[in-house]
Amino acid sequence: MTTLLMVEHLKKKFGALVATDDVSLSLNPGECHAVIGPNGAGKTTLIHQLSGKLTPDSGRIIFNGADVTSVPPHIRAHAGLMRSFQITSLIPGFTVLENAALAAQARAGSSFRFFRPAARDQAVNVAALEALDAVGLADRAAAMASELSHGEKRALELAVALAGRPKALLLDEPMAGMGREESRALTEVLVDLRHSLPILLVEHDMEAVFALADRISVLVYGRIVASGTPDQIRADPVVRDAYLGDEADAAVL
């Protein structure tokens, strides 16, 4: 199997701050690769570069055999590299279904169609409902996105990414701000997905990370300080020092 997403020597500076410092990593088909690290380590900055929101200063990003380093976000998404946002990013005035349907519409032929009501586009609606169903939101389809609870918004955030029928997912802290129960439920959703859909998972919730990841890379001050299987990472003294040192996380380990 060939590598789906390959990142080579990525570098990004904000003034004097090196937010991404010579990062290389890969994502293989059927794999969940978690990137963990303390606040401000540069995880979101990395996702931004992979999705195209930020352009790296140097380095290369290869997706599905093509160099996408300087390709704009919508083309990457169109190629199947879909992301979610750490800070929930939805269309608040749309219903739950419309949010997912718009994402599905992006992958269902031209949207330069001006007269037929989009709401009656059954193929798009079915794809959207499937995505909502996958995250357990199907019964909230008619609710306004702005009226959802925080946990529901996070689930919709994921559903929108899924509705675009991605080849690979970049998830930036999907569990951010969730309670323990909600977090576990979402982990279940991702467990079901991860072998059919490669996932690059940025997450602080160690329970979720160790439940999901086939591989873990640890990012500290923009650098990958360790990378390996969950067992290797658990045992790594450098990682324990730099990141997993605090008691809450130690308890999980």
């Binding site: 083309i75 998404a77 879909m82 990013s89 031209s110 330069f112 169609r113 037929r116």
Partner: peptide
């Protein structure tokens, strides 16, 4: 209410997300 309108209205509210959809 068309596909086109949905993209426009969506982008008015959250252009970054609509771009991230493709």
């Amino acid at each position: 209410a068309s596909r086109f309108g949905r993209v426009l209205i969506g982008a008015k509210q959250n252009a970054e997300r609509v771009a991230a959809m493709g």
